[in-house]
Nucleic acid binder design. Structure first.
Lengths: 343, 343
DNA sequence: TATTACTTGAGGTACGTACATCAGAGCAAG
DNA sequence: CTTGCTCTGATGTACGTACCTCAAGTAATA
């Protein structure tokens, strides 16, 4: 059997009350005694039964996803998974909620974060582009005792806050290699379309993409990134101009998580069957495009996994437990028409 | 707050004792009263607090993985993940164990299953090729009150036993399409190597592979499957003979989860850099081969996910809960050198 | 020495559920 | 009316932990 607090009390030679004081960091215990208890914890391998503790405490976890104010199909999918997790986890006394509240403006986004208090939330998952303002706001949030993970976009290596998402550099490299291999041995230019290049995510993808192309596929020349800014007409125009100016465009890489605008512009400008086109994120739209062979591959991250991983990390932090690292690594998925359907 | 058994008693107009009798299916309650309680459960949306119940009952779950007697690198990886899950889940009173016990012979494997009793195990995950003997043994296991899932290999649509693994037909199709696209526009023959074609898994992969090639890549002709039977010399010989007999072999598809023998044979017979080679399952060996560009892609299923999914399904069955379907779908992963490293 | 502060132990109640025991109600058969 | 049976309620203990109160101990200070 697993040792209980009683066993611990016996092993440490103190009473249950003292064990309780130490475990829950209450005051009024000599340092010496604290050490004795901690040593006993090591010695007998005591681990608190979190379920029993939560039961006694009547605890429930409140986790909130702070998402961008406006979003695309991918965000909608993420929200769907959040709702799913919400219903599934209610039985475990975990309340999951979300708010599409974060504006693009980093100052105003930071203000939203400033409004989050440990009274309302045990932890938040923040989906927002990296910025100094957000970084500061995050630090203050953590100081106030709210657990934080950065979600999908943001700074990967900003400890002690965890990052849930993929390495965008590697994602871009993956896209680059597939494009190169699908196109070989053809020669030509590659259109690169992004919603905006103002986000670190896009920049990193582009860097990874370019690196692979320049090193391993010198026959392919990526053009400067076209930005859509979410505007259909602008997108149509810049994409058409590109195809008009370069007769030897053989493929396209769509950087952002909103592929629709770019793809529709490309379809208007040229015959997609003669191009190799790669986009990011699985949505109903990209699925359809894969099936219709407009898209040749989609580089994706699993939204359900992202959501559950964020929640597990937040809970692990609340419980002061180590998460199972291998479970929380988000994979860069490659989707083609044949591995789209799940059993 | 979630309704408790007390709330349920009040709502049903009975005592706590009666509620307990109904919930735990004890005898001595009029059918009428049972119905009244069940209606109240629906009405107030009562769901048993499984943690509290387990605490009171002193319950712990015992799940066992029944694996093949002998195995390859992939099986070793799976075992590693089982051990990982074992340590992680001990805190949740879930005891995970494994036994490399199932021989190839279906009769003897069935005997092993016959030896599993609900006294020792709450649930087992069985990794064994589909056979009538095993199917019967599984049915009897379930009747004895042991939860069962089929693990990685076996029959996908054999209800009410769950299957944890990928659709091998789709996995083969995925391999076929990648091979075809990586090779385009070349023309030639494809070597197909398998450990044995006696397993349904291999057959299904081959079917999916052939279907894609014949429909979408008529320029590529897959050769009849070569079987290694785990014998290095035999493998060397048959592969070399293939390459000698067919000057126009441009690629290879390695069906099984043990790629080493086939790859080494191919390296001896020809220059792998001029071939497109696709194999299954991520192991340290296939990772290395991807990095060295001997392999062009690996079709894989995530062993950690497989293991955890099997455990979650078994636990859900024990608790008579519905699992979260979207979480338990095992994806067909495509690995290339760029999406190999995880953050 | 008396007073005070700090440390510790002993014991209780609670969380939501399981499980056991006993008492009483209702009812039918003798 | 008694006996025996079935159904139900009341009550208690337990699981492992949290949190509270009170008493008693020790040591330092006035």
């Amino acid at each position: 059997m697993r040792p209980t607090t009683k066993d611990l009390a016996k092993a440490a030679g103190v009473s249950l009350a003292t064990v309780d004081r130490v475990l829950n960091k209450r005051s009024g215990v000599r340092e010496e005694t604290v050490n004795a208890v901690n040593e006993a914890i090591q010695k007998i391998g005591f681990v608190r039964n979190q379920n029993a503790a939560n039961l006694a405490r009547g605890r429930n976890y409140r986790f909130e996803f702070l998402l961008p104010e406006t979003g695309d199909d991918f965000l909608a999918t993420v929200i769907g998974r959040i709702k799913e997790a919400r219903t599934a986890l209610r039985l475990d006394e975990i309340n999951v909620s979300y708010r599409c509240a974060l504006p693009n403006n980093p100052h105003r986004a930071a203000e939203i974060l400033a409004g989050v208090s440990p009274e309302d939330s045990d932890g938040v998952a923040i989906m927002a582009p990296e910025s100094p303002q957000l970084r500061d706001a995050t630090t203050r949030l953590v100081e106030r005792g709210v657990q934080v993970v950065h979600f999908i976009s943001g700074q990967p290596d900003l400890r002690p806050v965890d990052f849930v998402g993929v390495d965008n550099n590697a994602a871009g490299a993956t896209a680059g290699r597939l494009l190169g291999r699908f196109l070989a041995p053809r020669t030509g230019k590659i259109v690169v379309v992004s919603e905006t290049m103002n986000s670190l995510d896009s920049v990193e993808r582009r860097l990874g993409f370019d690196k692979v192309l320049s090193r391993d596929f010198p026959n392919l020349t990526p053009l400067p990134s076209l930005e859509t800014f979410g505007d259909p007409e602008r997108t149509s125009r810049v994409v058409r101009t590109s195809y008009e100016n370069h007769a030897d465009i053989v493929g396209a890489y769509i950087l952002g998580s909103e592929a629709r605008l770019a793809i529709e512009a490309i379809r208007k400008a040229t015959d997609p069957a003669l191009q190799v086109i790669i986009a990011h994120e699985r949505t109903r739209y990209t699925e359809t495009m894969l099936r219709e062979r407009v898209l040749d591959a989609v580089i994706a991250q699993n939204p359900g996994h992202l959501v559950r991983s964020a929640i597990r990390l937040l809970k692990a932090r609340c419980d002061q437990r180590q998460p199972l690292v291998s479970q929380e690594q988000i994979r860069i998925e490659i989707l083609i028409e044949d591995n789209l359907d799940l059993r």
